[in-house]
Amino acid sequence: MTNLTEIAFFAAGAVAVIATVLAITRPVAVHALLYLIVSLLAVAVVFYTMGAPLVAALEVIIYAGAIVVLFVFVVMMLNLGVRTQETERKWLAGRAWIGPVILSALLLAEVIYLIVRAPVSAAMNSISTPKQIGLALFGPYLLGVELASMLLLGALVGACHLGRTSKSGREARQ
């Protein structure tokens, strides 16, 4: 069984990597987003095989189910055509590549080194239950959770303010 789980883990990981590469390289924005969804789902499977089903479910619900939907929503509204693709190609030509490529190559080398050095199945099969995650979130990581919630509250108030269409506001604009 462990063997099968390991195969599933590596297969899902491979899918995630390939889908991510495709998500970066697709010229049509919606196609790229589709690959991004596939990549997120593959990461969810990776989490699941590593014994974190709750994180996997949250990955699917929050990232694949809500955040990328908003991306798709915005991309649909923008109606990107052939012209934007050409501008993008112009921007990404020549020198613009060099800096990011060097930096990410460094990161990649670091990741490869870490993977090769560390034993792979260290984190596997440690089942994290919702209770454990809840205790962790409201125990050692309480400060982080509260900071994130404050940030989200700020965003919410800002969005409300921007999206407000009161009678006086409408008159003021006219």
């Binding site: 949250l58 699917v60 619900i61 809500a66 939907v69």
Partner: peptide, 10 residues
């Protein structure tokens, strides 16, 4: 339950 919610969101 979370699986159901995830699938319905997909």
């Amino acid at each position: 339950l979370l699986f159901f919610l995830g699938m319905s969101s997909l």
